[in-house]
Every structure is written in structure tokens, then in C-alpha cells.
């Protein structure tokens, strides 16, 4: 049996969360979160619904100040949204702007930062990468949920970030689309060479995607485990999920989540 916790292989830290606490009034949501993410890593955070995943992610993204502790991005303390970080939000139907075409949505953050031709080139490349070539002139509401989430990912990619934060991006799409999108994200990670921090409540998704899985406890939330999946790349929906190692990690995470849940409901 392979040991479940080993030291990280990658070298350079790109992001660090140090002693992060967050309360709303008297309600403590996050209770001392500590972890680091290395450059090029794919890290998944799994936690039960309402455990504070979005709250954690907003602190990391600089959208919200922590009550205590801090988060570091590329060696600098985060006090405002970092320039080299892009977020793909939980609810695509609310984060894509319905008065703009897909193309305009993708262009919005980078408009004015590059000359016209380069801008068009970047947008086109991002749309091709996510499989939306030729769909740029559609409005978000003319597309299916899966296509909308692809568009939201394209917007993140065109921004050319070092780190992509994703908040339960596939929670609202059907199972088949979800499988496609998971493989898409894995491919894009290699293509664009980005670091990905991916939040989900789905254990299978987390284990399948991640180099490393962080398991959250129930509220008030802390990181209970830090598990390297040590699964071979490239991943494959059938082959990878057949591996003994996959079942092992999956069972381990499942156990931790269940413990967290029963702890929370005592």
C-alpha cells in the first residue's frame, strides 16, 4: 500500500493560506485554515455543502478580507484581487453578462489592455480551446448550461492567469456534460500551464481531477486532511477510476467527509 501522505514533489509555492479565520458577526465559519499550493499543481478542496468553501475562495481571491490570518499570492499578501488570478464562479448563469455575446463576455476583462488584433486572437484562441469555435456571436442565454460554463472558462483563460480558481463550476450541469468538462479542464491545465484550485462537494470529481485533495471539516471549518492522489497522468474516466489507488483515495476522503458531517450534526 502506498502511504497516503507524502511531502509535496513540486518545488515552488505559488499560493499560501496561513491561519485563515473568518466570522460573520458571532458566527465563525472558517477556523484556522492552513495550506499551500505549488506551481502547476491541481488542488481540489472538498467540503460538505455550507462548510464555507465559497467563503474561503473569496478570501483567497481578494474579494473579502479574512477576520484573522492571511493569504499569499506569488509571495505577496493578498489585499485586493491579484492580477494573475482568475475566478470561474459557481453559478455561470449569473456570472456571464446576458447583454453581451459570448465573445464580448470573454473580451470584457482584457479589452483595452492589448491592441485590437491581439485581443481578437486571444479571444478566438480561448473559445477554440474550450470547444466554442464559431459560437462567439451567440448570447449566453442562447446556449446550454454546459456551453455557458465553457464560455466562463474561456473568459478565465483569455485573462491569462497563473492560477485559476474554480468554485463548484460543474455543480449545475448534467452528469454527461460534467464528465466532458472535467476532461476539458485537465487538458486546459496542460495547454495553458496554469495552476488550478478547484472547489467541489463531489468526492469522485475531486479525486479524479486532483494532484492533491484538501478535505474540509464541517463548520467551523478547518482542513482535516491533505491527501496526494498520486494517480498517473493523463487521467482517463474509465482507466483511472478502475485503479486500486483511486478507490483507496476515494474511500479515504469519503470517510473523512462522513466523519466531518456526523461531527457537525452532534
Amino acid at each position: 500500500m502506498i502511504p497516503l501522505s507524502t511531502s509535496t514533489i513540486s518545488t515552488e509555492t505559488i499560493m499560501a493560506v496561513e491561519g485563515l479565520r473568518k466570522s460573520y458577526g458571532e458566527a465563525q465559519i472558517l477556523d484556522g485554515i492552513d495550506f499551500t499550493v505549488n506551481k502547476g499543481e491541481f488542488v481540489c478542496i472538498v467540503g460538505p455543502s455550507g462548510s464555507g468553501k465559497t467563503t474561503l475562495l473569496r478570501c483567497i481571491a481578494g474579494l473579502q478580507a479574512p477576520t484573522e490570518g492571511k493569504t499569499m499570492f506569488e509571495g505577496v499578501e493578498v489585499t485586493e484581487p491579484p492580477a494573475k488570478l482568475a475566478v470561474v464562479f459557481q453559478d455561470y448563469s449569473r456570472s456571464l453578462l446576458p447583454w453581451m455575446t459570448v465573445q464580448e463576455n470573454v473580451m470584457l476583462p482584457i479589452e483595452g489592455r492589448f491592441p485590437k488584433e491581439e485581443l481578437a486572437e486571444r479571444v478566438k484562441k480561448a473559445l477554440v480551446s474550450v470547444g466554442l469555435a464559431g459560437k462567439g456571436k451567440l448570447y449566453p442565454w442562447q446556449m446550454s448550461g454546459g456551453m455557458q460554463q465553457r464560455a466562463a472558462i474561456a473568459r478565465g483563460l483569455a485573462y491569462n492567469p497563473d492560477v485559476l480558481l474554480m468554485d463548484e463550476p460543474f455543480a449545475a450541469v448534467d452528469a454527461q456534460t460534467r464528465v466532458e468538462l472535467e476532461d476539458l479542464v485537465l487538458r486546459l491545465r496542460d495547454e495553458y500551464n496554469t495552476t488550478v484550485l478547484f472547489v467541489t462537494h463531489d468526492i469522485d470529481e475531486a479525486v479524479y481531477l486532483a494532484d492533491r485533495v484538501l478535505v474540509l471539516s464541517g463548520a467551523p471549518t478547518s482542513v482535516t486532511e491533505n491527501i496526494e492522489t498520486l494517480l498517473p497522468n493523463p487521467r482517463n474516466q474509465i482507466e483511472t477510476k478502475r485503479l486500486e489507488r483511486y478507490s483507496e483515495v476515494r474511500a479515504r476522503v469519503m470517510g473523512l467527509i462522513q466523519a466531518a458531517k456526523s461531527h457537525a450534526s452532534i
Binding site: G62, P81, A86, V87, F89, R94, S95, P109, E111, Y159
Partner: peptide, 22 residues
């Protein structure tokens, strides 16, 4: 929408873009 506000902040949209485009 709060999520739209989050989006404009995290993508660091300029004030002019925030007002006229969002």
C-alpha cells in the same frame, strides 16, 4: 447580483467598464 459584483472585482474591471458595461 452579488456574483456579478465579485466578477467585476476579480477581473479588475476599470470603473468606467464597471459602470457602462455592467
Amino acid at each position: 447580483d452579488l456574483q456579478v459584483i465579485d466578477m467585476t472585482k476579480s477581473y479588475r474591471l476599470s470603473p468606467a467598464k464597471r459602470i457602462f458595461k455592467v
